[in-house]
Simulated assay, not measured.
Amino acid sequence: MKLDQIETPAALIDIARMQKNIARMQGHMNALGVAFRPHVKTTKCIDVVRAQIAAGARGITVSTLKEAEAFFAAGAEDILYAVSMAPSKLPRALALRRQGCDLKLVVDNPNAAAAIAAFSDQHGQTFEVWIEVDTDGHRSGITPEQDTLLEVGRILHENGVKVGGVMTHAGSSYELDTPEALAALAEQERAGCVRAAQRLREAGIACPAVSVGSTPTALAATQLEGVTEVRAGVYVLFDLVMHNVGVCALDDIALSVLATVIGHQADKGWAILDAGWMAMSRDRGTSKQSHDFGYGQPCLLNGTPLPGYVISAANQEHGILSATAEHAHTGEDITQRFPIGMKLRVLPNHACATGAQFPEYHAVTPDGDSVEWRRFHGW
C-alpha cells in the first residue's frame, strides 16, 4: 500500500529511521561493553523486536505479563518483567516459567518479596527476582543505602529465591535538556545501582546483574563500570519529548500518525484533521518543556516538518491544526495551504502513548510502500 491509499488515522513507522535508531543504540552499548535489553513496551510489536534482537539485543524488558506471554510465544525466552510484582499475578508468572520462559520478576518491598517466597515454596518453583533501586526519586524502588534493600534481599535469599540482580530506571532524565545534565544523571544512575549491588554482595547475597537505563541516560552514558546491561525503549522510534530532551532530531522520529484534512474554521485559522486525541493520545509531555508541540508536529506526506504549524488542540476524533503565535502574522490562507483531502503525517509527543491507540502499524519502506505490522493491547 502507498501512503495515499491508507485509511486515516493510521500509525506509521518509517523503517529506515527505525533501523538507524536501533543501530545507533546497539552500537553505543557495544562500545561501552555492556549487554542491551530493549524495553518492548514502546511498540508491543513482534516485527520491531525481531529487528532489535537481530541487531544484537540480549533479552527483552516488558511492562505487562501479556507482553511476556506474547513475546515468549514468538520466541523470546530471556524476559525481565520490570514492574514490581503483584502477588495476585504470580500464577501467571508461574505458568510462563513452567513453559520454559526465563522470566525474571522485580520487587521493591518486603511484602512482595515474602509473597514470592511463600508462593515459591508452596508450588515448588524457584523464581529469579531482581530488586528495583531508586536512583533519582522519580518513581518506585529502594534507594541504595536504605536498610530495606538488605531486608528484601534476605527475605528472598533465605527462602531459596534467587536474587538475580538489581535494576533502576532514571525516569527523571525526561525532565532534562542539556548534555551535561544527562551525563551527570547517567553517572548517578550507574553509581547508585552499582552501590546497591555492592551492599547486597557484602551481605552474602549474590547479585550478578546490574541493570540500568532510560533512553536519555543510555545515550548519554560515557562509562558503565560495574553495569552488566542497559535497558531503553522509546529510542527505537523516538518522539517529540525526546527531541526536546536533546537526544534526537526531528528526522530521527520514526513514528507518525497519518491524518487527513477534513474541514476548516477559516476565521480561526484552523484546519481540521481526522486525528484527535483518540489517535494522538492525550499525552502533552512537551507542555512542560522548552518547546510545546501541542498534540503533535505536522509534516508533509514525505515526512518534512511544517515549521510554524502545530496540532494545537484535540477532541476525540478531531485535531486542530493551526499556526503558532510566531507564524500567525504571515496571514497565509490556511484553507489554501491545507485543502480538504490533503494527507499529513503528525509526529507524536510520546511514542508509547500514541502507538497504544492503534491495533497495527503501517511500516513504510524507503520507496513509499507499506506493510502491516500487528501490535497488541492490554495486560
Rank of each mutant, 00 (worst) to 15 (best):
K2M: 09
Q5G: 11
T8I: 05
D14Q: 00
I15W: 00
A16C: 01
Q26D: 07
G27L: 07
A31T: 01
K41T: 12
K41M: 14
C45Q: 04
D47R: 12
V49S: 03
R50L: 07
A51Y: 07
R58S: 13
G59W: 05
L65G: 08
A68H: 12
A70V: 13
A70C: 13
F71H: 03
G75A: 09
I79G: 01
V83E: 08
S84D: 15
P87V: 12
L90G: 05
R92S: 15
L94A: 15
R97L: 15
D102S: 15
D102K: 15
A115S: 15
H123F: 04
Q125M: 14
T126C: 09
V129C: 12
W130M: 10
E132N: 08
D136T: 04
H138E: 10
I142C: 03
E145P: 00
L149H: 06
R154V: 12
K162T: 11
Y174Q: 14
E180S: 14
A181Y: 06
E189N: 02
V194E: 00
E202W: 03
T217A: 08
A218Y: 01
V227W: 01
T228A: 13
A232S: 14
L237A: 08
L237H: 01
F238N: 00
L250V: 08
L250D: 00
S256Q: 07
V257C: 07
T260K: 08
D267S: 07
I272V: 11
L273G: 08
D274G: 06
M278S: 07
M280H: 02
M280T: 05
R284L: 12
G285D: 06
K288S: 15
C299E: 04
L301I: 14
N302K: 04
N302Y: 09
N302L: 07
L306P: 01
P307E: 09
Y309I: 00
V310A: 04
S312I: 05
N315Q: 14
L321W: 06
A323D: 03
D333G: 00
H350V: 14
P359S: 14
E360V: 13
E360Y: 15
A363C: 09
G368D: 03
V371G: 10
R374Q: 15
